[in-house]
Design a protein around this nucleic acid. Structure first.
Lengths: 169, 169
DNA sequence: CATTTTAGTTTAGTGAACTAAAATAAGCAG
DNA sequence: CTGCTTATTTTAGTTCACTAAACTAAAATG
């Protein structure tokens, strides 16, 4: 493509598409490195962001049944990424908390990334940085808006990826 | 946020993290909407980008065995996203090509996204746009570099997500 | 203190996607 | 034209994550 056809929309979309591909591939690579499935990876992120969660809360947030959450937490804790901590206030409850110490791979991966991103950002002056920040912030908003739009109607109607019970028994 | 706490590294990493989350969630939403698994979604993207691919090429690119590719293409074509076309030059070969017509959902999703992104990009003047483009381009490079780094060593040693043969028989 | 409710785990069974290897079909070489 | 190679599909068997439902344990209630 020459400069002749630099249509803003096309440029924006093309750049966004390539960025999106890069992000997804990176996430997949992180997941594979960690031995995690997409859902497990996402659940781990959830646990990290939302602080210690009870198994029930995790079930609600992921849309899984309690039994599936047990399996999920089993996998995650077997790999050492999370830890089951009994809730001192209510001993029926199990708090699932991220075990940050035990994730050298993940920490390493994200350290390298965040340092590279920091170096990159340092190159720009305030005006440029403002534009970049504005762009990224708006892109995030757009993505969330589009995600909501996609999630809303649901013509296929399946929120679960697979293995829905047939209820045939 | 005030200017007081704008540490470049922190800003870059934080912004990048949020962007990455947004991208991944969007991709997941698209995949769910389409009834596609992560790998299927990725394979579809591959077919779209790389033009018609033979089943064998797809196997190499995805790292799957030929048999698994047959299943993959079955799923994708059953949903109408791709089409099997016999290679006129070599009739053993099967070309798998994306069936763009048959994807109103996907087209709609990406049309909305690309229009929104186009509108966003149109806001900026040339200087700002140059900074943004530079930032995004470099971010993509960084992500690919980090992805390569993650993929290279592989302490867990598993390139396949699961179901590796035990070779016990 | 007995009963009900709540939280999570365990068990049984299902469906999906994968691997390995055999089968089918088409091109190519002697 | 016969045999060998290549490309994909088919078949058999495995593994994994999920659901549903039974179960265990702890808290709340009367």
């Amino acid at each position: 493509m020459s400069d002749a056809d630099t249509d803003p929309a096309a440029t924006g979309a093309e750049l966004g598409w390539r960025l999106s591909t890069a992000v997804v591939l990176f996430h997949e690579a992180v997941g594979q490195r960690l031995g995690l499935r997409a859902l497990d990876h996402r659940a781990l992120g959830l646990i990290e962001r939302e602080g210690p969660l009870t198994a029930g809360a995790l079930a609600e947030l992921t849309g899984l049944t309690p039994g599936a959450v047990t399996g999920l937490v089993d996998r995650l804790s077997r790999l050492g990424y999370v830890r089951r901590v009994p809730d001192p206030a209510d001993r029926r409850r199990v708090l699932v908390s991220a075990d940050t110490e035990a994730r050298p791979d993940l920490a390493d991966a994200f350290t390298g990334l965040s340092r590279a991103m920091g170096d990159l950002v340092a190159k720009y002056d305030d005006t440029e940085l403002a534009a970049i920040t504005d762009y990224v912030t708006n892109t995030i908003d757009i993505l969330y808006a589009q995600t909501r739009r996609l999630g809303a109607p649901g013509p296929t109607g399946r929120t679960t990826p697979h293995g829905e019970g047939t209820g045939a028994d």
